[in-house]
Design a protein around this nucleic acid. Structure first.
Length: 883
RNA sequence: GGAGGAUUAGCUCAGCGGGAGAGCGCUUGCCUUACAAGCAAGAUGUCACAAGUUCAAUCCUUGUAUCCUCCACCA
């Protein structure tokens, strides 16, 4: 064989891009036609708003590892990539763009606006796809989907209409969370609560008959125009007598009653609550119980409407509040203002304060869906990794609330509902109707709202495979096997996918749900755009390579723990990749003129058997870890096998036979090295995909591409306990001698005689006796004697003991003990004098109190240094005297 | 108010009933026929605190403390 030119240094830029396109061209990412059991994963679709962040990198790295691992097990494997249209988020991006041009979306009109959004989508999509490719994701691009694709849009309509037909979708006036900035309703879980300092205003409401007043507490005095009652707790003795009396609402001439309701907390404030059904969820519920009117005070843009006195109309809530408070004070109604921190809802997209807003919206009735999803979990159809997330899942499912799915946006799936302009008939249809079934009018108008983004994402595991059609893909790859996602979208997405799958296909969409941690910065903060603390995966790849990134993330991704990283963290993976590169380079350099021979078990020596056994062990560890999605354990197994066992011990041990053996021995040695290297590339490929492919291609014994090769399986026949024990004894002996040398700082060029006293009954004794030259090189010894009879003269040698043996290192040859001791004594003397001076200085009050603090500190550290040197020298002398 | 997580070496974190570990950093010595992005040796810890279970506890139970996350509520 000829040596392989791999002389250049490790630089992922030399091959990562090239290899990716080769894989892609060869169709390696498409499922094979093997008749083994299918394996499929759907990629959580990134939003087309932005570029991928570190969280995506983590997610997709883990998916890639799983997918490559399964593919190498011969299963027809499909990983479906795609993107999400991300309604609000994307619309916001485009609106911000327009804003810069001084335009509003209304200036463009719906059609033009959507056109423009599509082009933004295209642009971001291309960036995202490019990023996934750079990461090395082995997803099947032929199966790529977008949530607003034609096919997926059809799935959305099918889902909507089906649910409607099953009576699970309804429309009505409800109090919903409303973002005035985005101009749309939000689902409950799209609201983020934040504790903010605010004020609590105590306001007097006089009795209508002028017989005095009561006091209510409120954080939002400006909503008082929507008050329809004041409530007290029915058991509240203080107010029993006033229940039923009428109050006169300040600043208006409105009369409202005092009622009782159990939701009132007697302890809070005065125990009296004003009821404003249109602007508070509790009041809304209370209002329904008492049949009270809900008076909406807001326009869709968040300003006050015609239901408030004229002077406040058109004002924003905050402005109006200030003015109302002022007016209340003037009228003598304001009792006091106290500081009051409370949680205020904000839009999860634009962070504007969310208003409870009375409006007509579409809802999905969730109870029956949740029951099925809960049953799927109880039946064991889905399993969370780690298990603890099942509590969260269960809790959410058991406390499910109806899902507001309409959004007053333009970007998204139009609600498939039409209204006849002539007879008012509502038409819910899978296809666009062109005439009213009732009056045959052609004047139909589609509902102007779009659906919540998650209404398309919750269909993702099957809509991407062709549903509602019964496609071969759906047949083969549904249900999918594993879903990898972060915990922050368990409610938004994971739970709903399970509900949709159960509802529409009667099956869970996947069995294993792998919940990853969140990627945080080194201070533990969530990476975010606004903090500017994010790390761009592409920068990481440019600096360290995709392999380094994937391996590092995998190594750090312990069972759902958050991962804290900075740019430097990726050096871990980078150094490992470099190590692999150099090991391969070295081995390939030394195959010149050698032949690959058959590796017969009986020809293997103990070291060979050991490395095979260790390799086998690692394969088992990885299989165990992967079966439980313990990625960090797999990564560690690989790391320690390749670096610590293969490089540090086996390759080093092989040098003797490789450089000094017979031709036959050399051929065997090279063959074994190539065999282990080839197996290692396969073992490591899911975790370090590019470098293993690059090296694999250059191996004399490779077959095809490593991506399409088979994964090394654990083979109990290769287990070799004997070799493991023997080699660990040899390693132990080597370490003991190395440590002894190091403690005396004997330079490497001084080679010393070593006697290893080890009983005949110890199994390692004859093995070591057979491997004298190996031991010599590990111990850097001139001569190694294995003393089984205990007869060797070890006088004057430095003893170093290990488990089951003693080693004696003849250091006399390397050092002159007498003069060494003298030298050390001289050093002690010198340092003692220095120490004395130092101590004197430091005990001098004047010095300590007057000298610069730095000088005192410096003196103190000098003193410590002298003491340390003396101590060390003394110990050194003791050591020398001891032999 | 409910649920969950964290607390182990200077830093970031694995581990989890019988040996306290990794990477980085640090100290010392080495350019030893791949790798200084390396090799070899080394130091560093009442495994948060307290009680209990056990022959045995970093690991199990209970409680305490500190930090974090999620859910619900807050007039």
């Amino acid at each position: 064989m000829k040596a392989v030119e791999l002389m250049r240094n490790y630089d992922p830029k030399d091959f990562e891009e090239r290899i990716y396109s080769e894989w892609k061209e060869k169709g390696e990412f498409s499922p094979s036609s093997s008749d083994k059991e299918h394996f499929s994963v759907v990629m959580p679709p990134p939003n087309v708003t932005g570029i991928l962040h570190m969280g995506h990198a983590l997610n997709n790295s883990l998916q890639d590892i799983i997918v490559r691992y399964q593919r190498m097990h011969g299963r027809p494997t499909l990983w479906v990539p795609g993107t999400d249209h991300a309604g609000i988020a994307t619309q916001n991006v485009v609106e911000r763009q327009l804003q810069k041009e001084g335009l509003r979306r209304q200036d463009l009109g719906r059609e033009k606006f959507i056109e423009r959004t599509w082009s933004v989508k295209e642009k971001h999509h291309d960036i995202i796809a490019r990023q996934l490719e750079k990461m090395g994701c082995s997803c099947d691009w032929k199966h790529e989907r977008f949530t607003m694709d034609e096919g997926l849009s059809r799935a959305v309509r099918e889902a909507f209409v089906t649910l409607y037909e099953r009576g699970l979708i309804y429309k009505g006036m409800y109090l919903v969370n409303y973002c005035p900035k985005c101009g749309t309703a939000l689902a409950d879980d799209e609201v983020e609560y934040e504790n903010v300092p605010g004020k609590l205003y105590d306001v007097r409401y006089p009795y209508a008959d002028g017989s005095g007043y009561i006091t209510v507490a409120t954080t939002r005095p400006e909503t008082m125009f929507g008050d329809v009652a004041v409530a007290v707790h029915p058991d509240d003795e203080r107010y029993k007598s006033v229940v039923g009396k009428e109050l006169s609402l300040p600043l208006t001439d409105k009369k409202i009653p005092i009622i009782t309701d159990r939701f009132v907390d007697m302890e809070f404030g005065t125990g009296m609550v004003k009821i404003t059904p249109a602007h508070d969820p509790n009041d809304w519920e209370c209002g329904k119980r008492h049949n009270l009117e809900a008076i909406n005070l807001l326009n869709p843009d968040g300003t006050l409407n015609g239901n408030v006195p004229e002077k406040y109309r058109g004002m924003k809530a905050e402005e109006a509040r200030a003015l109302v408070v002022e007016d209340l004070e003037k009228g003598g109604y304001l009792v006091k203002i106290t500081d009051h921190a409370h949680d205020v809802g904000h839009c999860y997209r634009c962070h504007t304060t969310v208003e409870p807003y009375l409006s007509e919206q579409w809802f999905v009735s969730m109870k029956s869906l949740a029951d099925k999803a809960l049953k799927a979990w109880k039946d064991g159809d889905i399993v969370f990794y780690p298990r603890r997330w099942e509590n969260t899942y269960q809790h959410w499912m058991e406390n499910i609330r109806d899902w507001c799915i309409s959004r007053q946006l333009w970007w998204g799936h139009r609600i498939p509902v039409w209204y006849c302009q002539d007879c008012g008939k509502m038409i819910v249809s899978r296809t666009d109707p062109d005439e009213c079934p009732e009056c045959h009018s052609h004047s139909l108008k589609q509902d102007s709202d779009v659906l919540d983004t998650w209404f398309s994402s919750w269909l993702w595991p099957f809509s991407t495979l062709g549903w509602p059609d019964k496609t071969p893909d759906l047949e083969k790859f549904f249900p999918t096997n594993t879903l990898v996602s972060a915990y922050d979208i368990i409610f938004f997405w994971i739970s709903r996918m399970i509900m949709a799958s159960e509802e529409f296909l009667g099956k869970a969409p996947f069995r294993d749900i792998v919940i990853t941690g969140l990627v945080r910065d080194i201070q533990g903060r969530k990476m975010s755009k606004s903090l500017g603390n994010g790390i761009d995966p592409i920068e990481v790849i440019d600096k360290y390579g995709a392999d380094a990134m994937k391996f590092t993330l995998c190594y750090l991704a312990a069972q759902g723990q958050d991962v804290m990283i900075d740019m430097d963290s990726f050096r871990l993976g980078s150094r490992f990749a470099n190590k692999i590169w150099n090991a391969a380079r070295y081995l390939l350099m030394n195959i010149e003129g050698r032949n690959l021979v058959e590796i017969k078990r009986e020809k293997l020596n103990v070291m060979d058997r050991w490395i095979y056994s260790r390799f086998n062990d690692s394969a088992r560890e990885i299989a165990d870890a992967m079966a439980n999605y313990r990625f960090n354990e797999s990564a560690q197994a690989i790391y320690s096998f390749f670096w610590n066992d293969f490089c540090d011990w086996y390759i080093e041990a092989s040098k003797d036979r490789l450089f000094h053996g017979s031709d036959e021995e050399k051929d065997l040695q090279v063959s074994i090295l190539m065999d282990i290297l080839e197996k290692s590339m396969r073992l490591m490929h899911p975790f370090l995909s590019f470098i293993t492919e690059e090296i694999y291609q250059k191996l004399p014994n490779h077959k095809g591409d490593v991506i399409a090769s088979s994964y090394p399986e654990y083979d109990p026949l290769l287990d070799d306990k004997e070799a493991m024990t023997l080699v660990s004894s040899l390693q132990e002996a080597s370490r003991v001698v190395r440590a002894a040398r190091a403690s005396l700082q004997i330079p490497p060029e001084k080679k010393l005689k070593v006697v290893v006293r080890i009983g005949k009954d110890n199994a390692a004794s004859s093995f070591m006796n057979d491997e004298l030259s190996l031991l010599s090189s590990f111990m850097n010894a001139s001569e190694v004697i294995i003393d089984m009879e205990g007869k060797e003269d070890v006088k004057g040698a430095l003893p170093a003991s290990g488990i089951g043996f003693e080693a004696f290192v003849f250091v006399r040859e390397a050092i002159d003990i007498e003069s060494e001791i003298k030298k050390l004594e001289g050093e002690i003397e010198k340092n003692e004098k220095l120490l004395e001076g130092s101590v004197k200085k430091l005990s001098n009050e004047a010095f300590v109190s007057h000298a610069k603090p730095e000088a005192v500190e410096k003196e103190k550290s000098k003193k410590a240094e002298f003491e340390d040197k003396i101590e060390k020298a003394k110990a050194h002398i003791e050591l020398l005297k001891s032999f």
